[in-house]
Nucleic acid binder design. Structure first.
Lengths: 343, 343
DNA sequence: CCTGCTGATGTGAACGTACACATCACCGGA
DNA sequence: TCCGGTGATGTGTACGTTCACATCAGCAGG
């Protein structure tokens, strides 16, 4: 369990620094610094000598010292909830890759609950690391409050939200996605359509609900109060068992694929066939959705694309670029076998 | 998109430091340092004055400076593959929470492929941040090579592996889990059992396969060559379509729940009923597994527990504790409806 | 032969903090 | 009265790097 001890060398505690490299290379420490920051004014031959010395000593620049003197942490903070879910996890993975390629590191902080105190603590932990930029993947309503309270003065972007705060958000057009899903059900002849939404404090849940309601409104169909869920399959299942006691609807639009899965389960137990008796649409297109029973009709979002663009946007702003694109990413309806024409 | 400008104050660029606080509090900077590191020898009254000054100025300790002078980064590195999967994601979330509570931050690096170069690059990126400890959640066979090549000299732990390298690993007893699953099928009267495993370079895939083979051996049953998969539902589906052309087995033990889901899908398409014609066991117990059609019999691992213990172990070692527990976490068989007695 | 310029390299700060040590007031005991 | 000890506080220095500036050689142009 302990780190490999090297009993041979007496007390080689200190890691080599820029001056050690300079000594070996026979130059001044400043020349080494220039070599590290690929300055234009350094002779190729000198550069080679320095690089050889670096190699020989196994030198690594000390990021703390660098951060101290430049007052740039090269760290991007991510405030996230629900990182175990497919969407956020996929975005974060893309964010990490893009950040690393750009020479930045990531600091991810999970918030356990959506309570204000929890959000504030998470944000505080990030600010303590003097992050240069912030990405928010969380119930955004309360995050904005905390952002104000803590006087967060770094560029930030919220992910997977709506265009409510266009200046700071990068988004899949959730409203449009919800309209696609709802329209699909309407086109199939359904007139009594239910919606199981995500938690109300998630802006994207709100957006999907908006899209759903608008599309129903445009079609002059009766709107019912959506059910407020928690994104889990368990919720979809129990809500389904409850709702199916009154079979006064023939289609459901679920706020995400997990809840759709749970709802399908409830249909089976209630003796309803999908899509024969009940059409179901999900949201997200998680990789498993294609293998549900039956394969799920859903709305695909490109989570990785969103993640990449978040980094692009933030780095652009750090560089001082202006005119950056906030254009929403368009979602796509994936029709599989969980929806059918209403008899 | 830009950070809130404060046009009022002229050029308040520099963040307040320890000396600014000292000036306001009317003490020396060293006294402020003592207040921050809760030194015993400071008068309560003085402490209060310092705290008031900190509050007034909105002072935050500069972690880079602290890291520089103490040569402790307070960062734990995580080298991960497949962070979008439920297991790793759950562990990482627990790790992050535990690390944060202990005053550490996390630096997560994803490796895109399991190629050696990719692993080495990820490890390099982590070492450049002078991490104090390392957690590995990745195909471990090759990681060990890279660990040696880069002379990684920090405490490390590999997660979710077997006990192959007990000194450095913290593990759910995968072999035992696989035996539980296999035994369950045998107890139900199945004699022709197939195994769809994970990628061979994942030690845990290897362990599950070992458990499977040993249990079959103990029961004197015929062993077949396991199919090497890639953890995805897609693979389970296509492998299933292929395998089911020859219906010379009545049960499958899948290396994870996603592959089991895909396999179930293939069964439906091939006109086989689960569990009537085919019994299926998964591994992991992802939250969705309870809502598959039918609900999946699987082996539950406590991913969060593993994550917490990883941090506990590493922090213990950093503190110099000895006698830390590496006892494996025991998995649990969850019997649902995807398995039945062989006719 | 001097002047001014340019490219390559070196020297002195400074970033913000913690450690080692110095200082100082105060107290109790011989 | 003086001395040693202790608790609270202050002063110097170092961590490893980059920035601003200084130096120096070489060269072209008058």
């Amino acid at each position: 369990m302990s780190s490999p001890e090297q009993a041979s060398e007496p007390e080689r505690v200190r890691a080599p620094n820029i001056r050690d490299v300079a000594r070996v290379a026979g130059v001044s420490y400043q020349t080494v610094s220039r070599a590290l920051n690929d300055s234009p004014s350094i002779r190729p031959e000198t550069l080679a000598r320095v690089q050889a010395a670096i190699e020989e000593l196994g030198y690594r620049p000390n990021q703390a010292a660098r951060a101290l003197v430049t007052s740039r942490s090269r760290t991007i903070g991510v405030l996230a909830a629900q990182t175990v879910h497919y969407g956020p996890a996929t975005s974060i993975q893309a964010i990490e890759t893009a950040a690393r390629e750009a020479g930045y590191r990531l600091s991810i902080t999970n918030i356990s609950s959506s309570e204000y105190a929890s959000i504030k603590a998470g944000l505080d932990h990030l600010m303590a690391q003097s992050i240069e930029a912030l990405i928010v993947i969380a119930p955004q309503v309360r995050v904005f409050e905390a952002l104000n309270d803590l006087q967060v003065a770094v560029p930030f972007v919220t992910l997977e939200s709506t265009g409510l705060n266009t200046a700071h958000s990068l988004w899949v057009d959730q409203i449009q996605g919800a309209r696609l899903a709802t329209r699909h059900l309407i086109d199939l002849g359904h007139t009594e359509i239910m919606h199981i939404s995500g938690p109300q404090d998630w802006i994207e849940a709100e957006a999907r609900m908006q899209g759903f309601l608008r599309e129903l409104g445009d079609a002059d169909l009766r709107t019912r109060a959506p059910i407020l869920g928690d994104w889990t399959a368990h919720f979809g299942y129990y809500a389904g068992l409850e709702l199916l006691r009154y079979r006064d609807f023939t289609a459901v639009f679920c706020g995400n694929d997990q809840m759709a899965l749970g709802f399908m389960h409830a249909c089976r137990e209630s003796g309803l066939s999908v899509p024969g008796d009940m059409s179901i649409v999900g949201f997200d297109d998680i990789p498993e959705a294609a293998h549900f029973a039956p394969p799920l009709t859903t709305v695909r979002q490109n989570f990785a694309e969103i993640g990449r663009r978040a980094i692009e946007l933030l780095l652009g702003e750090l560089r001082g670029d202006t005119e950056l694109s906030h254009a929403p990413v368009q979602p796509e309806l994936i029709v599989r076998q969980s929806t059918a024409r209403h008899a």
